[in-house]
Each structure stands twice: as structure tokens, then as C-alpha cells.
Design a protein around this nucleic acid. Structure first.
Length: 483
RNA sequence: GGCGAGGUAGCCAAGUGGUAAGGCCGGGCUCUGCAAAAGCUCUAUCGCGGGUUCGAUUCCCGCCCUCGCCUCCA
């Protein structure tokens, strides 16, 4: 069974099968590494990860390329401001990105090309475009793509149906880069003083590549001139992906990507994320509030990728509870807890979950089915109504589902892992006394001791082996502002 | 203004031409000395007004509201 997936280009849900019959080749626009990625960025990367996992579960191999944008306006400006070498600056943020991705259980792409390491490929592509009359050099040594030379321009974003705001070019841009038509976009940008040492030799003089060209060059290098699917956030539909199509197809005459996957944006508490609103959260910000990356992952896949998703701290708390519950199930059924890709397998009683995922990556439906099927299966398991074979099937099915979703669940046996603080000896002593009182069935004394422990700022929880102590929730509410 | 998406229970969020998945919260119950945890269970007629239909939340029209993109933001 293959995946049906909405295609931005044709605007319909289409069955997705590898062009070469074997390996589904796809390209994801990666991060610009000039700072920490925020949870909105991660929605895209997490959904792309689920996409890959589902394709692999459906039986296809994949070849996943995701770039690192390490040479552009933002990386150059920021590194210059910090007085640091571009490569040092970007490799630091690249490392941070990798760390975050790992924490979120995002599989590593098979190839992760860096823009600055693919300058020859980009220059070559630009040369081809000039040669074929699709691009021109300006007096300052920049090169632009001539949009008028490519009649199909705008077909992805249906630009023809829009009112193009020509003439409304940013003043600063038009002063510095002298393009012929407002719609034309830079393939190569001539060096500017403020770029510092960040310019490279080209047939058109010192400069650096434009933003869009890197993806065309790297995608074609690592996936071929024509490949299965291209993906990114919705904001990339125009102009980034539109421009990629124009550059690539003008150069090769072939269809660039056969399917376009775009992930809708994340809003935060009902509002667009922005620096001025102070709601651009990073994984670090969430960690400071006591939330784990997996909780975020769960939230990010709890809505349809085609719809804007509203992130709230309540949903993060809900995710924690759900994960705990799923973790209990997995523990009781005894499945494995690896993060790796699912591959093809028998989903057993959880087959309807895979079905939901194959239906345009319907992750909310899948999660709903996971819960309702899981509840039934666990009820039977608890009533000891499952044969060993059925238990095994359920266990394997659950593991496969979790791997499709990329969820790594908390193990109830190491449950209080969040509690790093050791209780002071005095509190511990009170708790021991309370245990003794309980063993003597002296409930009054036990309750009194619990009150004392509470006053000391700790909660005592009874369990079969004795007790555990947890610090009282210091409710740092969400009222504090981001700086 | 152009293009696009959407308004479903306190919150998040699916879905269907035949009277609405799931999660969280809340209520009730079971278990437990009490708690906690866990388990069970209850809770919506789908923005407003028309229309098509035997029947619409699901299709069409109008209105109100929200949101995204419109040149380098995932």
C-alpha cells in the first residue's frame, strides 16, 4: 500500500510511488544556520520525518537530502556583527540544529549538503542559465534570472492569478542590486563591503550565490535532475520553490520535482510567531519550562500538516500525559523502544493507524486510532484475554506505530527521571518515620508527618516498595516574558 | 486589493450526505488506610442566514469573524 499525499503543484491528493520503482528520492529545504531553530521550524522537520518514516513503512526505500543554508544574507550579517568567521559561526549553529533534531527523534538525512561547499555546482548552474539566455549579468557583477524567459514561471504558486506587486521592490535592494525587472531574482550577488571576507571568485567577479540557487544545485547533484518530491514550509512556495523550479527546469528542460509537500505554519497561543511578540520558542525555552522534546514532537504531529496548528502550553501538558499513558502500554506489552525507522512490518491490530498515515499523513487521525485501539487491546491484555501470539502481534504493532510517528516513550520504570533534586536528609528522615508509622497502621501519625513534609516543600508518594519524594511544583506560570 | 486556509465541546484536534474520532481538563466510579498513580465512565448537534436533498456539520449561495502568503520567514 502506498502513500497518498497532497501535492501543492497539482492541488490534489496523489498516490506517491518512487519514480525509479525502488527508492523515493526527496529534498527538504533545511535550516539557515544563524541562530537556534524554533518550534515552528521543527514542525516542518518533524513532519518531513514522519513522511519519511511512513514511506519506509509502506515498503519503499528513501533517499533523503536536506541542506544546510550557511551562506546568505542572515548568516553573513550575523557573523559579521559578532566578528566571527562565517564557517565557525555556521558550524556552531549547525551543531546545535543537529542536537535539537536528535532530541526530537528526527532521522538523519542520507545527505546533508552545505551551500558553501557547493559553490562550483551553483556557479556551473548559473553559467548554464546565462548560456541558455535565462539569466543576465548586471553592471555591478550580480547575475539575475530573467523571469520573462521562462513562461511557466508562477505555475506552482499560481502567480498568474495574482496581482504581482511590481515596482514595489525594496529600496535598499534595488539600489544595491540593479535588476531589470522586479520579478527577477538574484542567482549571484556581487560582493558588498559589509559582507567582509565572505565572497568567492566566479566568472562574474567576487560575490556569493543567491538563496534559491543552492537548493537547485544541491538537489540535482544529490538526487538527479528529476526526482520524486520536494518539501518545505508553506512560506517557501513563493518565491523560493517557484524560483527553484524556474532555475532548474530552465536549465535542464526536465521536471524538477514531481511532487511538492508543504507544511503549514505553527501559531502560538493563537498568534503568529514573531520576535516582537516574544513567542519564538526554542527547545531550550521549553526545557526551561520543564518540557521535553518528545512532548513537543507529540504536539507537532497532533494536527494535520496542511492546517495551521495552534501551539499552546496546555497541549504540551496534555502531550506529556498521553506519552506517559502510551509508555505504560508499551512497557506492559513489552515492545522495543528504538528510535529507528519502521521499515515494512505487520502492524497487527494497529493496522488502521498505518492506514490513517498513508491517507495524506493524517497524524491526528492516526493518534486517535492509536489511543482507541490501544485502549481496547490493553483492556483485553488486563483481562488476560490475549494469547501469547496476540500479545506479540499487539506489541510489535505498537512498536511499529510508534516508530512511524517517531515517538520514544517514557519508561515507567525510570519514571521520576525528571526529579534531579535530592531531598534534604531531614525530609528523608520524616518520610522514613512516616513509612514506619504506616507499617504500624498508625494513619494519624502518618498524615501528620506528610503535612510536615509538605511544609518542607516536598510531596511524599507511596508505592509498593516504600515511598518517593518529589519537590512541590513551583508553578512558574507562563506569564514571564521572553527576552 | 490578489491568492489561499479556516471557524467543531473549557482547551488542542480529526471526520462524515444519514443525527460527531482521539487527547487534556472537569464530574462520577473502581482500586488504595488516606493520597498519588492506574483503570472504567460521563460531557458537543459542528460561526450566522438562506438553498439543494427524504435527510447537511458535511454540497451551493450570502454574511460575519480569524489566520497565512503576496520577493529572500519553516
Amino acid at each position: 500500500m502506498s502513500l497518498s499525499l497532497y501535492d501543492t503543484f497539482s492541488r490534489e491528493v496523489r498516490s506517491l510511488q518512487p519514480l525509479d520503482g525502488e527508492t523515493l528520492r526527496f529534498y527538504c529545504c533545511g535550516p539557515t544556520v544563524y541562530g537556534p531553530a524554533h518550534i515552528g521550524n521543527f514542525r516542518t522537520f518533524v513532519m518531513q520525518d514522519v513522511f519519511r518514516r511512513v514511506v519506509e513503512a509502506s515498503g519503499s526505500a528513501t533517499r533523503h537530502v536536506r541542506n544546510i543554508t550557511d551562506v546568505d544574507d542572515k548568516t553573513i550579517r550575523q557573523s559579521q556583527e559578532e566578528n566571527r568567521a562565517l564557517s565557525e559561526f555556521t558550524s556552531e549553529w549547525t551543531a546545535r540544529f543537529h542536537k535539537d533534531c536528535d532530541a526530537l527523534g528526527i532521522l538523519h538525512p542520507h545527505v546533508e549538503p552545505s551551500a558553501v561547499e557547493h559553490l562550483p555546482e551553483q556557479i556551473d548552474l548559473i553559467s548554464q542559465l546565462i548560456g541558455k539566455g535565462h539569466a543576465y549579468r548586471t553592471d555591478d557583477g550580480s547575475v539575475y534570472f530573467d523571469v520573462n524567459s521562462f513562461p511557466a514561471y508562477g505555475k506552482l504558486s499560481r502567480l498568474a492569478e495574482r496581482e504581482i506587486t511590481t515596482g514595489e521592490i525594496d529600496r535598499e535592494q534595488s539600489d544595491e542590486y540593479d535588476r531589470a525587472s522586479a520579478a527577477d531574482f538574484a542567482l549571484w550577488k556581487a560582493a558588498r563591503p559589509e559582507d567582509g571576507p565572505n565572497h568567492w571568485q566566479s566568472p562574474w567577479g567576487q560575490g556569493r550565490p543567491g538563496w534559491h540557487i543552492e537548493c537547485s544545485a544541491m538537489a540535482m547533484k544529490h538526487l538527479g535532475e528529476s526526482f520524486d518530491l520536494h518539501s518545505g514550509g508553506v512560506d517557501l512556495v513563493f518565491p523560493h520553490h517557484e524560483n527553484e523550479i524556474a532555475q532548474s527546469e530552465a536549465a535542464t528542460g526536465k521536471t524538477f520535482a514531481h511532487h511538492w509537500l508543504h507544511i503549514a505554519h505553527l501559531t502560538v497561543e493563537g498568534r503568529k510567531m514573531s520576535k516582537s511578540l516574544g513567542n519564538l520558542y526554542t527547545l531550550e525555552d521549553l526545557a526551561e519550562r520543564g518540557h521535553t522534546p518528545m512532548e513537543l514532537r507529540y504536539v507537532l504531529i497532533s494536527g494535520s500538516y496542511r492546517q495551521p496548528l495552534n501551539f499552546t502550553f496546555d497541549s504540551l501538558a496534555a502531550a506529556k500525559k498521553s506519552l506517559t499513558r502510551l509508555g505504560n502500554w508499551q512497557h506492559r506489552l513489552g515492545g522495543d523502544t528504538e528510535i529507528h525507522s519502521p521499515g515494512k512490518g505487520d502492524f497487527g491490530p494497529f493496522a488502521p493507524v498505518l492506514e490513517a498515515l498513508l491517507n495524506d499523513l493524517n497524524t491526528p487521525e492516526a493518534i486517535g486510532r492509536l489511543h482507541s485501539i490501544g485502549r481496547k487491546v490493553m483492556a483485553m491484555a488486563n483481562a488476560e484475554e490475549l494469547s501469547p501470539a496476540e500479545t506479540k502481534a499487539a506489541s510489535e504493532g505498537l512498536s511499529l506505530v510508534l516508530r512511524c510517528l517517531g515517538l520514544v516513550l517514557p519508561n515507567p520504570e525510570n519514571a521520576p527521571a525528571t526529579n534531579i533534586d535530592e531531598p534534604p536528609a531531614s525530609v528523608n528522615k520524616l518520610a522514613c518515620e512516616r513509612l514506619e508509622a504506616r507499617q504500624n497502621r498508625n494513619w494519624e501519625a502518618a498524615d501528620q508527618l506528610r503535612d510536615q513534609i509538605l511544609e518542607a516543600g516536598w510531596t511524599v508518594l507511596d508505592n509498593p516498595d516504600g515511598f518517593s519524594l518529589e519537590p512541590l511544583e513551583t508553578k512558574t506560570e507562563i506569564t514571564d516574558h521572553q527576552s
